[in-house]
Write a protein that binds this DNA or RNA. Structure first.
Length: 796
DNA sequence: GTTTCATCTGTTTTT
DNA sequence: CAGATGAAAC
């Protein structure tokens, strides 16, 4: 390797435009290293360029390296970039997520791990229902052992590499949990299914127990690259250790780990930041490369991020810098309510758009999904197109799950989860009673539900109406099973939708149109999948298209990729935004209890993780960042009063520009009337420094008379400590509702009465003055739009 | 056996 | 507030 300069073989521009640290990382020799890559420091670029570099310099063949990421998106991105850098056939390369790669190994050695070739993967929902089913079968009180908590217990044990027989049980309760854990694993084995954590654990055990096999992989993967290392859990760490080989340092494979401890935001699901420290000890041996130059955000944004994260105690230490200018200050908007916050975002996004920024370059972020509702509502009314990421994904939709359950049964009749999901869906006269009979039979003979049902009918245990109904269900499954080898995947699904009666069922249902559309989307998805589906590589176990598709459905859940074309504002949680960047970012709900979330703010680790989450949020923005919070918001059906997030307080005042809406009416009046008034709020820096009183008084006559309004009251009362306990929420509330009454008397939620339609409640409104219309949900007449000008509507 | 209504509950992030 | 579950009506 030293004989000839390896760089001479490298394609001409591969290493261009890399800064010294990046280049260092890319061209590193045969040694393990930890790359501490700050947000926006070109992490993915380094990772992919290194792969290209290793291949081009002949240090490794494409099949001799293993690159593992955390998300499907990241691995796809890696492959895309790689193919754009060099002509390469990525098929056969071991690039994927932890779960994807483990799945691949388990499929290849399914006999060694005691799994059926067609084993299926339980997603978290499937796992939950499996546990519920188990608890019922064991006659365990699911109030005392809640399925949620049980799945947490089981998953965290697995993520630490612990099987039930080695879990320590200090008390009776835990002992019982361990028993359930064991029973759960037995159930999964019986049914031939694995959950997410099992995928990793089973693979780890395969390698650790099967020395020749482990050595085979160790010999193969000379270079191992790990993305988002801070998100790895203990089991993943040990898996990497196994593959790296625990031989002498010279012989051991090279592990190149890239991560950012400041962006570790998955501790709640078992990720251990501590792995980064351990890695330095076990692998890198002090070999740490820091990427600290940020190419994404402008100065003020970056400074704010650094300031916030500096409050964390437990850090490896890293400070991002940029040679971009200071840029704009962060804009902070204290909204009166969540509705006000949403309206602000709408107005502001519109203004930015008018000024030339595409909506698609803006993101609206929130801490928890529940917050998106109000925001979406405001966007919907404004007519701005938007896209929500996350939420329920394609393969998680109920109707899709049902259809997939039939397909799973076609592939593996022992899948009791799938069986119970659809025995009586669509309803075919198999009630709880009949299902119980089948379950009893299954338990008595220790066989699957499917087998029990078949036996029961054959030997008369299951007779009469119940027997007939169950028989018809089994017929459907058999028909699908016999078709599965013969027809194409898409045809099979089509047949499944017909035979099962799902199509008919949803066609008859009042609100079934969407579900029907999704089902036909499923057929399309199958056709597409089949097109790209390639048989096994040489030496690989053949996997049929059906099993592959079902695996794909569990592992990838189907991100929404439609609608890329139109210019839509992007809505997502902060977690979902990790790795992305936008010209403008709105971070909503910057309130204590929400962000930091109340579930996390009480313990030290939780709070530090929340702060890292804040750091992630801030560093998503390139040019402009808005932080908004609301004095009150609806949460779980009741109004909650919030105070500004401590994280905002951790941002130096000099980087902030406070936006205040002194009076909504004045702002709207100006907005709709005179054209010149832009936005309706006044920039105010130094508010928190205590200068507000005078600032407020001098900033214009338009609103000085409205001391009632939330913002001014807020500051007037609280001076330079804006987030003390909320003093007078009642005034706030009154102020807000008065405002509503001014626009028209029928606020959302108002109970009203109509001469013809009777009583109802206002659910929406639009327009103003003469052409105002309200949407009313009547008790008996359904939902109607009414024009206030004509409809005789009275307040109740 | 199925539908509907009412009550309850749980609320962070996800491969 | 919404989704899930359970009890009573159909």
């Amino acid at each position: 390797m030293q004989a000839s300069d390896p760089q001479s073989h490298v394609s001409p521009r591969l290493l261009d435009n890399l800064n010294p640290e990046q280049r260092n990382a890319v061209t590193l020799g045969r040694e393990s290293a930890l790359v501490l890559a700050g947000a926006g420091s070109g992490k993915t670029r380094v990772l992919t360029t290194r792969i290209a570099y290793l291949i081009q310099t002949g240090q490794v063949s494409p099949s001799g390296l293993l690159a593992v990421t955390f998300t499907n998106k990241a691995s796809r991105e890696m492959l895309t970039r790689l193919t754009s850098m060099m002509p390469i056939n990525t098929r056969g390369m071991w690039v994927g997520t932890f779960h994807g790669l483990c799945n691949r190994m388990l499929r290849a050695h399914y006999r060694d791990v005691n799994l059926p070739q067609t084993f299926q993967i339980l997603d978290s929902g499937d796992q939950q229902s499996a546990i519920k089913r188990l608890l019922k079968a064991l006659n365990v009180d699911d109030e005392k052992f809640k399925p949620r908590e049980m799945s947490w217990f089981i998953n965290s044990a697995k993520e630490q590499g612990l099987r039930s027989h080695v879990v320590e049980a200090k008390d009776e309760f835990t002992r019982r949990q361990v028993e359930i854990y064991q029973a759960y694993d037995e159930q999964c084995n019986r049914e031939g299914v694995v959950d997410f954590a099992e995928l990793l654990l089973r693979c780890y055990e395969l390698l650790s127990k099967n020395k020749p096999l482990c050595e085979h992989y160790q010999n193969r993967f000379k270079f191992i690259l790990v993305d988002e290392f801070q998100d790895t859990n203990r089991l993943q760490y040990k898996w990497i250790q196994l593959l790296a080989g625990s031989r002498t340092a010279e012989q051991s494979n090279v592990v190149f780990a890239v991560g950012d401890d400041d962006q570790s935001i998955y501790g709640f699901r078992g990720a251990e930041v501590g792995n980064m420290r351990d890695f330095q000890r076990d692998f890198a041996n002090g070999n740490v490369i820091k990427l600290e130059q940020n190419y994404r955000s402008e100065g003020a944004i970056l400074d704010a991020a650094n300031a916030v994260i500096s409050h964390n105690k437990d850090r490896l230490g890293k400070n991002l810098w940029t040679d971009a200018g200071k840029g704009e200050n962060l804009r902070i908007y204290p909204a009166s309510t969540d509705l006000d916050e949403a309206e602000f975002v709408v107005e502001e996004a519109r203004t930015l758009n008018r000024e030339g920024m595409a909506f698609a370059d803006m993101a609206l972020l929130y801490r928890s999904n529940a917050q998106s509702r109000v925001l979406e509502h405001a966007l919907f009314r404004s007519g701005i197109s938007y896209r929500v990421y996350g939420g329920l994904r394609f393969f998680e939709r109920l109707e899709i799950k049902h259809a997939l359950a039939y397909l799973r049964l076609a592939g593996n009749p022992d899948d009791d989860g799938a069986f119970s999901r659809v025995v009586n869906f669509p309803p075919r006269g198999i009630g709880a009673r009949s299902v119980e009979q089948v379950m009893d039979l299954a338990k008595r003979y220790n066989i699957s539900l499917y087998a029990a049902a078949a036996n029961g009918i054959a030997n008369g245990d299951l007779a009469g109406r119940a027997g007939l109904a169950v028989g018809s269900f089994l017929k459907i499954c058999e028909a699908l099973k016999s078709s599965s080898g013969k027809v194409s995947l898409a045809e099979l699904v089509d047949e499944c939708l017909e035979l099962s009666g799902l199509k008919t069922h949803y066609a008859a249902e009042r609100e079934g149109a969407d579900r029907l559309a999704n089902l036909s989307e499923l057929v399309t998805a199958c056709a597409q999948f089949e097109e790209t589906f390639e048989g096994p590589l040489e030496g690989e176990e053949p996997t049929d298209a059906l099993t592959s598709f079902l695996t794909h459905a569990s592992l990838e859940a189907g991100e929404h990729e439609a609608g890329e074309s139109d210019d839509a504002l992007q809505l997502m949680t902060v977690h979902a935004a990790k790795g992305l960047e936008f010209n403008a970012v709105f971070l909503s709900g910057c309130e204590e209890g929400l962000f930091p979330h109340e579930q996390s703010m009480n313990d030290f680790d939780g709070l530090e993780e929340e702060r890292r989450l804040m750091y992630v949020a801030i560093t998503r923005a390139r040019k402009r960042l808005y932080l908004t919070y609301a004095g009150s918001r609806m949460l779980h059906g009741q109004t909650r009063y919030g105070v500004v997030s401590r994280f905002i307080d951790e941002i130096p005042e000099a980087l902030c520009k406070w936006l205040v809406v002194p009076d909504k009416n004045a702002a709207y009046g100006a907005h709709f009337g005179a054209g010149g008034f832009n936005g309706g709020y006044i920039g105010n820096s130094g508010v928190r420094a205590g200068g507000l009183g005078s600032d407020n008084a001098s900033s214009g006559s338009a609103y000085t008379g409205h001391k009632q309004s939330y913002s001014s009251q807020h500051y007037a009362e609280q001076g330079n400590q804006p987030y003390g306990r909320q003093g007078a929420p009642d005034t706030t509330r009154a102020g807000f509702e008065t405002k509503k009454a001014d626009t028209h008397p029928f606020a959302v939620g108002q109970n009203v009465k109509h001469e013809k339609f009777g009583e109802g409640v206002v659910v929406n409104f639009e327009g103003r003055a003469n052409d105002a219309r309200v949407q009313v949900k009547f008790r008996t007449e359904g939902v109607k739009w009414l024009s206030l000008q004509y409809a005789k509507l009275s307040v109740l």
